[in-house]
Amino acid sequence: MATSAPAAPTPSRRGRLGLVAIGLLAAVCAGGWAIIMANAGRQPGIAKQTITYSVLSDSAVQIKYSISKGKSDEVRCVVDAFDTDFAIVGKREIIVPSGTKTITRTDLLATSKRATGARVESCHKV
């Protein structure tokens, strides 16, 4: 009489559902972590955007930007210009007063040497 080897156990339906549940939980956790990392370091409720900049000369840059925030918040922002090595060659601090929700401004920045770009570098509540 020949004996056959026992058949390998097949995964049960309950085992597969457990693996699916673990996979979904891992995906949700990864998505949550991605959202947290994308927003790390940002000030909630403050949105800053550089619209355009134009290098006018070796000593001046014009920058147009907008800042949106809560209407009751007073916000201090730094607008700067930088050179090819990203060294700051011009800088101005501006204050957006409370009572204003969004501003769009054009400023002229004096620079110590020719700039290659300009930006709204940072904003925070006062």
Rank of each mutant, 00 (worst) to 15 (best):
A47S: 12
S59C: 02
G18H: 08
F86N: 13
A38F: 06
I94D: 00
T104L: 09
R114D: 00
K69G: 03
V20R: 15
T116G: 13
S122L: 03
V61R: 08
K64T: 02
Y65C: 02
A26C: 06
P97A: 11
A21S: 10
G23T: 03
T102D: 07
V61S: 06
L19Y: 12
R16H: 11
I94F: 10
G117M: 08
R105E: 01
S66C: 03
K91T: 04
M37P: 01
T100D: 01
V120K: 14
A27Q: 08
M37R: 15
S57C: 05
A21H: 10
Q62M: 07
G90M: 08
V120A: 11
A34M: 12
L24K: 05
V20L: 15
P44R: 11
S12D: 00
M1E: 04
D73M: 08
C123S: 09
R119V: 00
W33V: 06
L25Q: 05
A21W: 12
I46H: 12
P9Q: 08
I51Y: 06
K69W: 13
S57P: 04
R114C: 04
V61A: 03
A81T: 02
D58N: 12
T104W: 05
A8W: 04
A21C: 03
H124C: 03
D73V: 04
A60Y: 04
R92I: 00
D107S: 14
A115P: 12
Q49D: 02
I63L: 12
L109M: 08
K69A: 02
I35L: 15
G70C: 03
R105V: 00
G70Q: 13
I88H: 11
L108Y: 07
G31H: 07
L24W: 10
S57L: 05
G70A: 04
D58S: 10
E74N: 08
G117Y: 13
A8H: 08
S98V: 00
A110T: 05
T104A: 09
K113A: 01
D80M: 09
K113M: 00
S122W: 14
D58C: 05
S57I: 04
V61M: 05
C77E: 08
S59Y: 04
A40V: 02
A40P: 03
A40D: 11
T84M: 12
D73F: 13
D80V: 00
A26F: 06
K64F: 01
Q62S: 07
S112P: 02
M37Q: 14
A5P: 11
F86Y: 15
V126R: 13
I88T: 15
T3N: 12
H124Q: 10
S66R: 15
A60K: 14
D73Y: 14
V89W: 10
I94K: 07
G99A: 08
F82A: 02
S112G: 01
G23M: 06
C77P: 13
D107K: 14
S57D: 03
D73K: 14
V96Y: 15
E121W: 15
I36L: 10
G99V: 05
Q43N: 12
S112M: 01
I35H: 10
Y65M: 02
A81Q: 06
P9T: 02
S54W: 09
T106A: 09
P97L: 11
A26I: 00
G117R: 13
C29I: 04
I35V: 15
M37H: 07
S66F: 05
